[in-house]
Each structure stands twice: as structure tokens, then as C-alpha cells.
Lab assay of single mutants.
Amino acid sequence: MPSETPQAEVGPTGCPHRSGPHSAKGSLEKGSPEDKEAKEPLWIRPDAPSRCTWQLGRPASESPHHHTAPAKSPKILPDILKKIGDTPMVRINKIGKKFGLKCELLAKCEFFNAGGSVKDRISLRMIEDAERDGTLKPGDTIIEPTSGNTGIGLALAAAVRGYRCIIVMPEKMSSEKVDVLRALGAEIVRTPTNARFDSPESHVGVAWRLKNEIPNSHILDQYRNASNPLAHYDTTADEILQQCDGKLDMLVASVGTGGTITGIARKLKEKCPGCRIIGVDPEGSILAEPEELNQTEQTTYEVEGIGYDFIPTVLDRTVVDKWFKSNDEEAFTFARMLIAQEGLLCGGSAGSTVAVAVKAAQELQEGQRCVVILPDSVRNYMTKFLSDRWMLQKGFLKEEDLTEKKPWWWHLRVQELGLSAPLTVLPTITCGHTIEILREKGFDQAPVVDEAGVILGMVTLGNMLSSLLAGKVQPSDQVGKVIYKQFKQIRLTDTLGRLSHILEMDHFALVV
């Protein structure tokens, strides 16, 4: 994948999101292997301009796509893939009243899908469409860049269908997702969380590099694949309309690839034109409109599966009536509230959605109805927002919020430890010299600072030695090549209790 991002070429006709291997024109390309080798690009942008032909009021008969309808489940399912879809609609009884809503608040519980998330729908649909058009064949390999849930859905379907599955996901995604993927037989590649989507090191860039190296491999490409919004247009939206008897006044959905909100909203605009569509985008993402909503100094966020630093091709923002931004604290607070007060075992993005819903639905009156999409299960986040310690460490809970008995030293300040200034190293000294210094002084790690004293990161003896043994660096290389740029900081005025929580999850903390 090139470091400079080429513009994806656009073909003359058809839909841009065809499933299957992508040609340089962004659509299915038939021909000899030699032709494909000559024409197939190194990668295709996940934010390529959409060429979708959908228009409100256009006859369904003019759609270029294969459409399906929700099917009634048999008493005995032939395999677990038949437990994807037909998820329950559940009334939220307490939270709406707590925040003064007059309307009825309903939750579409997508964590009841077989793999635990709304992404099971698009995973199965992308595979079925690729099999139907002859792209996927027995023994082929599926590769997908994902925040985890699409990966789980694909790995689940691949396990049943017999495909090899490789999932490329950023490091910030939970260990629970990784464990589930491994249990399903998927191979996992992790990428830096802070890598831009168009960087060769991003999950998108690495996935395309693997595709170019592995024979008979395919990126189904949830960011561009029409099967993504079509899955929701054909099934999720129809289920909502049936469950609500066609009567709903507002739908609120958090947005990642945009397939969920695009597919549902398009069908609702056709069948229930008075329904307002509300999009939820986390602070630090750029999906919301108008652009002024996205202006923030924050560039990272903890909530998973929603928000991006690019506009995915499948996201149709014209069908969203209003956007709201959400933050991590309210997302996790509301997710825990949904679990504790409503018994809905949902993930953090569901918290984002409901946090926005109780604001947006203030305009609705008694007798009206708001539906929220709860995308995934708490299963993926047992060591994250479900953990009091994690919430404390991230600053989303305060010590006084917890009532468990603490040891005698818990409320003492870090400054009472009488710490001395640490050994520091410059980023320009060599790895070999740094190892000598650390061994001589008896230290395992040291902060790396520039000549102005600005902290650049941390270097550890173990990481340097393993990097040297693996051949990633040489003793003569500058130590700046092996620094940890993500590390926890703590102030002298913070409590030892807070430091204790940090050290339970990290090997060190830097006192500043």
C-alpha cells in the first residue's frame, strides 16, 4: 500500500459497493488471473465517493441489488447463522422517566444476534452475496479491517462455511474481542490505534497488504460494500417497522461504517417519512454534520465500534436529520445504567446512543415513540467499562463513588512517597548505550525526554532486548525507535489509591 493515498477510480455505471474482489474501477472485475494482476490496485480507499443510485421515491424494481426479506425461524435451526436477525424490541421503562421523557422509549437489542452484535447481519450478508456472485469459493481466505464486531461476525460465518479468516484490528480494541476471535479460529493482526486510516500501518493498510500477498484472499470491505446497508434496509428496518406496527417518530443510532443508519433510515424514509433520524458520533470522530460539531482538541476516545477519521463510502449522511456528539463518560455511564436499571447487557456504544436519545427525544410528546439501536453486548468489555477499576483509572468514576473498604494508605498523596527525580535518556542515544546505562543503574525503564525536557515516551529494558533479539533494531539504532509513546501519567497530588489502580493494569506510571 502506498504512503500517498491515490484516488480510487470510478467506473461508468453500476453501484460502487459490489461485493467481491475490487477492480481499479471499484466494481467486480472478471477475466484471467493475468488481467486481474495487471488491473487490481494495491488498495482502494474506504472513503471513495459513493456511486449508489438510491433515491427517495425511486421504484424498488430499479435497484441493481439482490434483495432479501426477513424469514421466520424454524423450530430447529440448521446452523447458528440462522440465529442472525429477528432481534427483540424491548421497552426501556426507567431511564426515559428518569430523564423526563414523555414518549415511549424502545430498544432494538442487536446483541441477541448469534455473534453478539449488529455486525453479524452485514457479515453474513457480505459472505452470502460474495458466494452468490462467485467471488468467494471453498478454501478462500477472508481478510477484514475491523474494530472487532464485524470480525467476530465474519469469523463466526467463516467457521460454519469453512473459510480461512484473518482479522486486522487496532490495538485499542478489547482483549475479549481478541479472545472470541481466536476461539472462532480467526487469525488476528493488531495495528497502532493512532495510525491514520490511509497510513500503511493502519488496520485498513495492513489488511490490503495481506490481501496482495495471500492468494485467493478477499477483503469484503464493510466500508464500501453495498451488502452492509442492504442488510439493514432489507431486514433490520423491516423488523423495526413490523415490531412497531409502522408507528415510530424517531430513530437514534450510533454511527461507525454508517451501514446501520443508512440502511434503516432509507427504508424508514420510504415507509415512515415523518420519522426523524438521529445520528450519534463520538467526540474525536469526524462523521457528524455540520462540520463545526467535529471541532475539538480530542483525537482519541475509548468507546469502541463507532466514529472514524474518514467518511466511509457506505455512509449516506443525507438521510440523517440531526447529529449529536457523545463523550466517553456519558457513554459508559449510560451503558452501566442500562445494565443495572433495565437488565440490558449492552456495550458502550449503546450507552452513547441512549445518552443522546434522552436529549433528542425531549421534543417528542406522549403517545409518540423513539427507537434506539443497541449494537453489541457487554461480553466484549468485561475488563473495560464493566470494571470499576478501569473506570477509575480512566477518570470516568471517582473514588467516592465506590463504597468498598480501602487499605490505610489509600488516600495518601503520591508526594508522600518522597520520590527522587528519575533517570532520563535522550532519544538520540543508541539502544546499546541505553541498555548499558539501565543495567549500570539497576533500572528496568526510563523516560525519554528531548533537550527541552519534554517527555516523549518510555523505554524499557525488556522491550529493547526483545527488539534486538527479533532483529527489529540494532544496538547502533537510536533509542527513539523503541519508545512507548502511550503511558499513564500521575500527579504528586493524586492518591496512592489512584496509582494502585493504574499499576494493576500497566507496568509503570510516570509522575509529573
Rank of each mutant, 00 (worst) to 15 (best):
K82T: 05
H218L: 05
S50P: 09
E201H: 10
G14E: 10
P41G: 10
E29G: 12
S174P: 01
A8C: 06
P200R: 12
E144F: 00
F197Y: 07
I214G: 03
S147E: 03
R182Y: 09
A24F: 12
I214A: 02
T260L: 02
A69D: 10
K211F: 08
I264C: 14
L105K: 03
K102T: 10
P6N: 10
R132D: 10
P59T: 12
E29D: 14
E104R: 05
C244A: 03
A183M: 04
S61T: 14
T13V: 09
I264P: 02
K108G: 01
G162Q: 07
E29V: 12
D86N: 13
P46R: 02
D234I: 03
L220S: 02
I143K: 02
T87R: 01
T68D: 10
K108S: 04
A207N: 00
S147Y: 03
P88G: 06
G134R: 14
D238I: 08
R51N: 09
K271S: 15
I188K: 04
R276V: 12
A38F: 10
T135N: 13
K271V: 12
G57Q: 09
W208Q: 11
C52R: 00
G11T: 09
A253V: 09
D86Y: 11
G20A: 15
P49R: 09
G148R: 02
C109V: 11
K39S: 05
T135H: 11
Y223C: 06
P170D: 05
G31Y: 05
V178L: 04
P33S: 10
H22N: 13
P6K: 08
G148N: 06
P16I: 12
D120A: 12
P16Q: 07
D133L: 13
R164Y: 15
R132T: 10
I80M: 10
L210C: 08
L184R: 02
T193R: 09
G205Y: 08
E4Y: 11
K82R: 12
K30I: 05
K36M: 12
L106N: 08
A60P: 10
R164P: 08
E239W: 00
K30N: 11
R190C: 02
K269N: 07
L105E: 00
H218C: 14
A195C: 13
V168N: 04
N113D: 06
C109T: 06
E270Y: 05
I142H: 02
C272G: 09
M89V: 10
Y233N: 05
